[in-house]
Computed example of a mutant assay.
Amino acid sequence: MAALTGASVEEMRPVGGGDICDAYRVALSDGRTVFAKTLRPAPEGFFAAEATGLELLASSGTVAVPEVSAVEEDVLVLEWVEPGRADAAQAERLGRELAALHATPARAWGNPDPSRPAYLGSVPLPSPADPPAAPEDWPAFHAEWRLLPLLRRAVDGGGIAGRDARDVERLCEELYADPGDGTGVSGPPLPPAVVHGDLWSGNVLWSADGRARLIDPAAQGGRPETDLGMLELFGCPHLERLLAAYEEVGPLPGLRARLPLHQLQHLLVHAVLFGSGYGARCGAAARAALG
């Protein structure tokens, strides 16, 4: 730790940090307090991808994230943010900030560094070496680089089968055929925007200073529905207030009808990681997206 931070460790105690990594609150000899998380062995580029994602979100000037202090193959060191209570004021501010984030243009669909995958949990999300960037490219990109690879992993691992798998395949066929002009299942064409990419409520850090921080991103060029669908999928404190504030800044007509399509990616990841209990939900989301 001293080599990474330039200071020796005075105290290190475990804190909650998710299901994958070991996490610690670390008091340093120079008076700083940092958050460190480790994973041994970590997938190649695992923490580097997270650090890149945090830096991409920070560079938008819209949402708050912990500052990256240091990153190595098996450890990530971040600014310590004192946790606080989730309240309506933070939720409303976060809603406005998310709308501003989603108005930030991304270079293309997919990961900011196409040579490096993003991660949803421990599951990698690759991108093509020459990523597409036109609004009408999103449906085929989403089918080929997000849904189908996850579906194959879920099928191979027994997380989805039968009708549910076939309906996800059928949705992907519709996406391949979607012209991206608003007449298909993907909805109206939108240019790639910077999104968090894994915005379930556990990746919202409610702070003592009154401004929520976003953590553990799979930040990339995507569509806003990806973040909003994830927040709704597993619930979030004061979600109605958050979404109302978002809509005041960046309304998305027809959002609710498109949520199942955008929630499917995350449900497939859960089918990969946690098994067949999520397979039925994947099938239901695909059928709802197909209408």
Score class of each variant (00 low, 15 high):
Ala118Ile: 04
Leu148Lys: 11
Arg287Glu: 12
Leu242Cys: 14
Leu125Arg: 04
Tyr278Asn: 05
Pro131Tyr: 00
Ser186Glu: 01
Thr104Leu: 12
Gly197Leu: 09
Leu147Pro: 11
Leu243Lys: 12
His142Arg: 06
Pro66Gly: 06
Arg163Leu: 15
Val34Glu: 03
Asp137Phe: 00
Ala244Asp: 10
Phe46Asp: 06
Glu10Ala: 14
Ala36Glu: 04
Pro139Asn: 02
Glu79Phe: 05
Ser276Glu: 11
Val34Met: 04
Arg223Asn: 07
Ala285Ile: 09
Gln263Phe: 08
Asp130Met: 09
Gly197Pro: 12
Leu268Phe: 06
Ile215Ser: 06
Gly16Tyr: 00
Gln90Glu: 07
Gly182His: 05
Glu136His: 06
Ala88Arg: 14
Ala219Trp: 03
Leu228Ala: 11
Leu239Phe: 10
Gly157Trp: 14
Thr183Arg: 14
Gly18Arg: 02
Pro217Arg: 08
Leu175Phe: 01
Gly291Arg: 14
Arg40Asn: 11
Gly84Thr: 07
Gly221Met: 11
Pro191Cys: 08
Leu205Asn: 00
Arg85Ile: 13
Glu248Met: 03
His238Pro: 11
Ala48Arg: 09
Ser127Trp: 01
Val123Ser: 08
Pro189His: 03
Val77Tyr: 02
Val155Asn: 06
Gly275Pro: 11
Arg107Val: 14
Leu39Asn: 05
Arg13Phe: 00
His266Pro: 07
Gly187Trp: 07
Arg281Trp: 03
Ala288Leu: 13
Leu78Thr: 11
Pro128Tyr: 00
Pro188Trp: 05
Cys282Thr: 15
Ala88Val: 10
Val81Glu: 04
Arg107Ala: 15
Pro126Val: 13
Glu232Ala: 14
Gly283Glu: 07
Glu169Cys: 04
Glu169Pro: 10
Arg241Val: 15
Arg32Asp: 02
Leu175Thr: 06
Ala140Lys: 05
Val26Gly: 05
Gly182Thr: 13
Ala219Gly: 13
Ala118Arg: 02
Gly235Thr: 10
Pro189Ala: 02
Thr183Cys: 13
Leu252Lys: 03
Leu239Tyr: 05
Ala244Ser: 15
Ser127Met: 01
Met1Ser: 09
Asp209Tyr: 01
Val77Ser: 08
Leu101Ser: 07
Ala70Glu: 03
Asn111Cys: 12
Ala23Trp: 00
His196Trp: 14
Glu144Pro: 01
Gly31Val: 12
Leu98Ile: 12
Ser115Cys: 04
Asp181Ala: 11
Ala7Pro: 12
Glu240Val: 10
Tyr119Val: 13
Pro117Ile: 09
Glu92Trp: 06
Ala134Pro: 08
Arg258Ala: 08
His142Trp: 12
Ala280Asp: 04
Ala289His: 07
